[in-house]
Design a binder for these strands. Structure first.
Lengths: 353, 353
DNA sequence: GCGACTTATGAAATCGTTCCCACAAATATA
DNA sequence: TATATTTGTGGGAACGATTTCATAAGTCGC
């Protein structure tokens, strides 16, 4: 029985256009025209070539094509941590938009490491991607790409202000609204959990927080701005310390979803009731915030929309490299949930006492 | 001042190895050897070439290289939905392992659509990826890739049993353990929320559920196996109907994290206390399950590890295309949390009455 | 029936790289 | 000294496609 079946045995080597041309009895040029649709080809010939290609299982070699055409249909996407839902949604939006526009995506997760980011940028240049969408962690990668004449769109945060396109949200305004919300509820000691100050996101969120305090005539107390690490554990540790201290705040504003998770876990571990004993608000609305009880008040960035917009922008830029740079600012909604409420009397007493 | 700065103006066109060679005063062959490290090159010459390359901002054209070498250093990764944390973690693990092994990743999110999956497979072939890691949604893509002689590793679920390598977990065993756990707690009416039956994951989880019921001598009631849709809303709707019915189950086993989210939201909407009035267990342990109160008992698959293992497997396969196919079965731990407990007396009465 | 245009085809150059080969000089081995 | 062997270099042929150009036949308008 073996070898007796009619199953077609795949050939050792992949078919080339030359073989397709021979099978169809035409020249390579004609075969190319028949398959790509560029230039004149007689209808009968077109069909013959298409059929020959099918029978041989021919698939164009994108590299040979790009080499000749000196351009590719792929876009580099560089994110800091795919395991973080924000970046995953961003990448999903970018990927889908790219597919829709006929591009493929080269995705690299640089783990937030500047060296890896630079290596990724080099890989993108080597692969001659048509453009790059990146959530930068340093100025290095963008600089390198721009020097190499590769269109870049910075997403979420900016390092090369004005030198390239960008898609961001109104971090400062959103942070101000959230802080204002807490102040309006009666909070006077509002801590800000923040991982960094070097990025535009962190800086702007901090500024928005400060804006709101100032507008309300509240002091901007240094010890209430808590620098944390990058991951949940570090954030939790920082929050534990903060919440165990005598001058404990009545509200925490976490500058992103990871820090919010740390704060939430810390509060749970200390047995603090939210919102009675602690109000919690966050930047980045992720699913768990609407699943826990009470839900967590959060700034809802549409990461998927950011990814889509970034890809659209980079494709526009590829089409017109000379146009002036654009910065797209997307709005973000604040989802008010049960985690923010007026500080309780008891808490006020505790604070005073 | 403008144009007076010493800033180097990037050249219009990218430098080629020919230009590097000329700048260093050697032939293209020598320049190539100096940069790649293959073959003999005098030390002084090597340095001269490297410097020339640096000064010209030379970056090798990966496409020209691959065309000549007839191989690439990139791997195609195909997932169903990057917004789902399971796939995001899988992709993150795959991406990082690929980077570690010197490969770049072409990522495509096929949205679970068979046509898109096939189109992605074609794109991978066109780009001549060295191998593909995929969470298949139909047999088509894998078949096509195998016919095209592209190494494929199926992850999470299988369509081409034995025809290619695979990385999966013990779905049946894990489902059995969870169901058994619910039975041991005293549950007799345990519903299974499941999205599909066509994939190995769904089938095996269902079998594990059935195994446990049978082993306990419990009837396998048809109306307790609930087919849901793919998204949270559909799952929630199905769960709402189930939980509002007179013969309502005392426990729900959700076959994945999306369905679990739907069930959780449904229970919350109906005001059912977990675990007093309803026990909930799930497949796929995602962060929210340990953040809500009570935590949700879940099978913890390490998606990142699956992605890593898949990439490792496909790279091994690239190295030895003739070796027999392997199926790697990773173990999954069951995280027991507060959402599963013995059914309350009141509930039992309700059920009887 | 003659120029102008459209349609159709194939030969050959080209994209940027690698790598086989030929050759030469330096070094090691007999 | 004669002969291998190692080290170093450059010429040129690939890799697989696209695309320019030349050529030729058919069509149109007059």
């Amino acid at each position: 029985m073996r070898d007796g079946s009619a199953a077609r045995v795949p050939p050792e080597r992949r078919a080339t256009i030359k073989e397709v041309a021979e099978a169809a009895g035409v020249s390579r040029s004609t075969a190319s025209r028949a398959l790509t649709g560029n230039g004149y080809v007689a209808e009968g010939v077109r069909l013959r070539v298409r059929q020959a290609a099918n029978e041989l299982g021919y698939v164009v070699d994108a590299m040979a094509r790009s080499l000749k055409q000196q351009s590719t249909r792929s876009i580099g996407v560089l994110v800091s941590d795919l395991r973080n839902e924000f970046y995953a949604n961003l990448a999903a939006g970018a990927s889908r938009q790219a597919t829709r526009l006929g591009y493929t995506v080269m995705l690299i997760d640089d783990q937030g490491i500047p060296e890896d980011e630079l290596a990724a940028a080099e890989a993108f240049v080597a692969l001659r991607v048509a453009g790059v969408v990146a959530t930068p962690v340093s100025a290095g990668a963008t600089d390198f790409l721009l020097r190499q004449r590769v269109p870049v769109v910075e997403v979420d945060r900016r390092f090369s202000d004005g030198a390239c396109d960008a898609v961001v949200i109104d971090n400062r305004g959103s942070a101000r609204v959230v802080t204002r919300h807490l102040i309006d509820l009666g909070h006077r000691r509002i801590a800000l959990l923040i991982d960094e100050d070097d990025w535009t996101t962190g800086r702007e969120r901090r500024e928005g927080y400060a804006d709101a305090l100032e507008a309300a005539g509240l002091p901007h107390e240094r010890e209430l701005v808590i620098p944390t690490g990058w991951d949940v554990e570090a954030a939790k540790a920082a929050a534990l310390e903060l919440l165990s201290s005598p001058g404990r705040p009545t509200a925490i504003f976490a500058a992103n979803n990871v820090l919010a998770e740390g704060a939430w876990r810390a509060a749970a571990e200390l047995g603090l009731r939210v919102p009675d004993q602690l109000s919690l608000a966050a930047f980045d609305d992720v699913p768990w915030m609407s699943m826990v009880t009470p839900g967590v008040t959060a700034v809802a960035q549409d990461a998927g929309a950011m990814g889509r917009a970034a890809v659209q922008t980079v494709v526009d830029r590829i089409a017109d490299p000379a146009a002036g740079t654009r910065t797209i600012v997307l709005s973000a909604a604040v989802q008010l949930r049960g985690s923010t409420a007026a500080p309780s009397e008891v808490e006020s007493d505790l604070r005073v006492g």
